[in-house]
Simulated assay, not measured.
Amino acid sequence: MFTASLFFTITNYLNAQASSDYQVVKTKYYTSSTPFHAKNPKQNIYLWNAKHTKRLHNLKNYPNSFWTRAKTVTLRKNNKSAIYYYVAGMTPHGTPNLYGYVWRGYLKPGYNPNYKVWNGLDINYFLSNKDYQRYIDQSPSQNLSRKVLHLFPNARLSLKLSKLTAYGSTLTDFQKQFSDVLMVKNANYAFYNPRGKVTSANQKLAAIKAAFDAQGYNQQKRSALNGYQIGIYYESNRQTGGVLSYDDGYYAGVTVAKPLN
């Protein structure tokens, strides 16, 4: 037993010594928190400490999470180099202290695609129209967005147009990339709660629909908008009765337009 114990101790020591031979030869920092997720959420993928001597977390234990990159480091050992990301874990339940270094080959860009468990994601980091559509289709915070999109059954969701809407862009900004821009101020106001009152998604939808009707865009005309694209941004907070959060710095609303190209 003593011999086995001694062998185990020496082996662990030698493994630690070998791992500590990793050298940082290059570091790059980032100003934006680009999200990544595991290519294979069922695979053992470890976050390491800076010296690559200790496993801190296993990504397999956080299958619904995504990981934001703060910096990239190039590690060298025995004349071989590998690029690692220093990441912070973002979980649906806000699990703290998920930090570490992970080989970049284990990750792929974008949010975790299981949007059923996610709310309030930054619109800037969706990868495509399809990605943003999946979020709207699945996220609990997008109930109103789904209802509004149904008012325009033949308009295709556009991430680019949605970003312009969220940024509170001017008509001139829209016209640089789109034509026949349809923005109805009263419809966009209806995404918000009136002062001192919380309105439900259905109440907001009725007000949005009424605003378009008043502008001459009834359901028949809305359904005839073939070849148009639609941009939308809205986030609700289920914990506060569906109140729109004003803290993210974006504007709620919907815009319909034709792309120039």
Results as ranks from 00 to 15, higher is better:
Phe2Gln: 15
Ala4Gly: 07
Ser5Asn: 13
Leu6Glu: 14
Ile10Gly: 04
Asn12Cys: 13
Asn12Leu: 15
Leu14His: 08
Gln23Leu: 14
Thr27Ile: 13
Tyr30Pro: 10
Thr31Arg: 05
Ser32Ile: 02
Pro35Cys: 07
Pro35Val: 07
Phe36Ile: 06
His37Asn: 11
Lys39Ser: 04
Ile45Asp: 09
Leu47Pro: 05
Trp48Asn: 02
Lys51Arg: 12
Thr53Ala: 06
Arg55Ile: 13
Leu56Phe: 04
Asn58Phe: 10
Leu59Asp: 02
Lys60Thr: 04
Lys60Phe: 00
Trp67Thr: 04
Ala70Arg: 02
Thr72Gly: 02
Leu75Phe: 12
Ser81Gln: 15
Ala82His: 06
Ala82Asn: 01
Ala82Glu: 05
Ile83Lys: 02
Tyr85Cys: 10
Gly94Val: 05
Gly94Phe: 06
Val102Lys: 08
Arg104Cys: 10
Leu107Phe: 02
Gly110Ala: 12
Asn112Val: 08
Asn112Asp: 02
Val117Asn: 12
Gly120Phe: 05
Leu127Val: 07
Ser128Phe: 09
Asn129His: 07
Gln133Tyr: 10
Gln138Phe: 10
Ser141Pro: 04
Gln142Asn: 10
Gln142Pro: 05
Ser145Arg: 04
Ser145Val: 07
His150Pro: 09
Pro153Lys: 10
Pro153Asn: 02
Ala155Leu: 00
Arg156Ser: 14
Ser162Ile: 06
Thr165Ile: 09
Ala166Cys: 08
Gly168Arg: 09
Gly168His: 03
Phe174Arg: 11
Phe174Leu: 06
Lys176Trp: 06
Met183Val: 14
Lys185Met: 02
Lys185Asp: 15
Asn186Arg: 15
Ala190Ile: 00
Ala190Gln: 00
Asn193Ala: 13
Pro194Tyr: 07
Arg195Cys: 07
Lys197Phe: 04
Val198Pro: 06
Leu205Pro: 07
Ile208Asp: 06
Ile208Arg: 01
Ala211Met: 03
Asp213Gln: 11
Gln215Asn: 10
Gly216Pro: 08
Gln219Met: 11
Gln220Tyr: 11
Lys221Thr: 12
Arg222Val: 06
Asn226Trp: 03
Tyr228Cys: 06
Gln229Trp: 04
Gly231Pro: 10
Tyr233Lys: 03
Tyr233Asn: 03
Glu235Leu: 01
Val243Pro: 04
Tyr250Phe: 01
Tyr250Ser: 02
Tyr251Ile: 12
Thr255Asn: 07
Thr255Glu: 07
Val256Ser: 04
Ala257Trp: 07
Ala257Met: 08
Asn261Thr: 07
